[in-house]
């Protein structure tokens, strides 16, 4: 799949979901269990993305490198209620700094 195909498919799927909310009867998704699953879906995906982006190397093997240190700093800042942009910039700085020192 080319990058453009991927981009446009994702855009079409996202819009279809948004529009479905306007076209489908509400009772289809208002049962408690399905709304619970929908609420937990982003939690599962984001947790998996954090793990993969931090601990998995290009070939699928698990590694501990500068990214793990950067995530540690990000988590501390999140616990301190730092702003989104501060968290993201700090993580980039930590990883870049460690790599400049020759680690990870």
């Amino acid at each position: 799949m080319t990058t453009w195909t991927t981009v446009l498919l994702a855009c079409a799927a996202a819009y279809a979901l948004k529009l479905a909310g306007y076209l489908l009867p509400a009772r289809w998704v208002q049962d408690e269990r399905s709304s619970r699953v929908v609420a937990l879906l982003p939690v599962a995906l984001l947790a998996a993305l954090v793990v993969v982006q931090t601990l998995v190397a290009g070939g699928g093997e698990l590694v501990l490198d500068a990214r793990a240190a950067a995530l540690g700093v990000a988590v501390v800042l999140l616990a301190l209620r730092a702003d989104f942009l501060v968290v993201v910039a700090a993580a980039a700085l930590v990883a870049a700094g460690l790599r400049a020192l020759g680690w990870g």
Binding site: V50, A70, A74, L78, V88, A91, A92, V94
Partner: peptide
Amino acid sequence: AAAAAAFAA
């Protein structure tokens, strides 16, 4: 690493 931090945030 910023991407991982963005997902964590």
